[in-house]
Amino acid sequence: MKTFTKYLGAACVLGLGLASTGAIAQEKIKIGVSIPAATHGWAGGLNWHAEQAEKRIEATYPNIDIIVVSANGATEQANDLEDLVSVQDIDALVVLPFESDPLTVPVQQVKEAGKFVTVVDRGLSLPGIEDVYVAGNNPELGRVSGEYIRGRLNDEGKIVVLRGIPTTIDTERVDAFVEELEGTNIEILDMKHANWNRDDGYEVMQDFLSRFPEIDAVWAQDDDIALGVIEAVKQADRTDEMFIVGGAGMKDIIKRVMDGDELTPIDVLYPPAMIATAMDVTVMKFTSNAPVEGRYILGATVVTQENAENFYFPDSPF
């Protein structure tokens, strides 16, 4: 429904543009932003940050026009890309592909049409298509989380791990995490999939709690899972025994870190705000003569009580 309104809006703008042919709007640089629709928390944050960045950039640079479209699936996104090129006649594209494989060729076609292409988060299956690549760092997220848990436990203790949905993202995170703990006396009691979902996090943690009498730390990997874990630990009345490390940067968890909650001492970022980074870099291509082409891999910043304020967006849905 939102997408529809946006299309309607875009159509109106287009209509107005046609009506006032050649008046002022001609020199505008159009940047299309294609992202997945807000079907889960992280994507919700993505959409919110894209909208915020759109407002901010358009206010700063009157000659830049940003068009954000969101898609509910890979096919829909491929259609969006065609529309952006043929109907909107964009100069640059910022795209967070729904899935890598099915969108490689559609993005390649945009590139072949002579547009500047920025790919975000999920890389394409063929190298050399995009001018700019912006992404979070999944292995780094796992490594940093492992590093923190090692430090807190002095290389000794028992932990449980809640994994995400079985995908490359999950595997990369978990592999790096396990590698970081190698050679220590930290025992991973078990790892189970909680599918980046609160309810699953709650249930899996309940079962871990009845199965293991001693748990020193929990790596929930994701903030939605972490929220479920928190409730399960509270219910079992074992809050003094362990701490929980989540990931992503959801406002509820950042708030807890900011307030100095003993249960969630830190959070590791995998920020949906990366879409704003990508949009800004793309805009720089047109507003400055600084070279921007290249790969931007964002660090997996550790959020602690000291710096939490910088990452707290109370208005964001995520």
């Binding site: 429904m1 939102k2 629709a37 807000a38 079907t39 889960h40 928390g41 994507a43 919700g44 944050g45 959409n47 919110w48 609160r198 939605d224 509820d252 964001s316 849905p317 995520f318």
Partner: peptide, 14 residues
């Protein structure tokens, strides 16, 4: 399903 996504602005209602 869409209505709840819309109400939550794609995120989570707490």
């Amino acid at each position: 399903r869409s209505l709840v996504t819309y109400m939550a602005d794609g995120g989570t209602l707490s």
